[in-house]
């Protein structure tokens, strides 16, 4: 009994400690930083006549982003500038981006 109570207290302490440190330690990841750079162009849909670039502020489906970025990169999907950007990302980096935007949906 005594042991259980102690364990419960210890658990509570460690849980609250974990919760506090987890919120404090919510680090800015590489995926988040990389995704935020996309928002320079893809951050606002705007209104006509400026609504020319699709916005990503509401997120994007993971598999579709991977497929789209790979298509831009290998040229199977035509583009003006996205091909030049997509060539700057590895498969692993495209997946980081896709994970991040999928999480924003």
């Amino acid at each position: 009994m005594r042991y259980t109570r102690l364990a419960a207290v210890a658990l509570a302490v460690s849980l609250s400690g974990a919760a506090a440190s987890q919120s404090a330690l919510a680090e800015v990841t590489r995926g988040a930083l990389m995704a935020k750079t996309c928002l320079a162009c893809h951050g606002a849909a705007g209104t006509a006549p400026e609504a020319t670039i699709p916005t990503l502020v509401h997120g994007f489906p993971r598999e579709l982003m991977i497929q789209t970025m790979r298509g831009f990169r290998d040229g199977t999907r035509p583009s003006t500038v996205m091909g030049r950007h997509a060539k700057g990302y590895t498969d692993a980096e495209i997946e980081l981006l896709a994970d991040y935007f999928d999480g924003m949906r």
Partner: peptide, 15 residues
């Protein structure tokens, strides 16, 4: 690209 230029301005200034 001229259309994207205007879209870029709109987006980056919002960002």
């Amino acid at each position: 690209e001229a259309d994207y230029t205007r879209g870029w301005y709109r987006s980056i200034t919002t960002d």
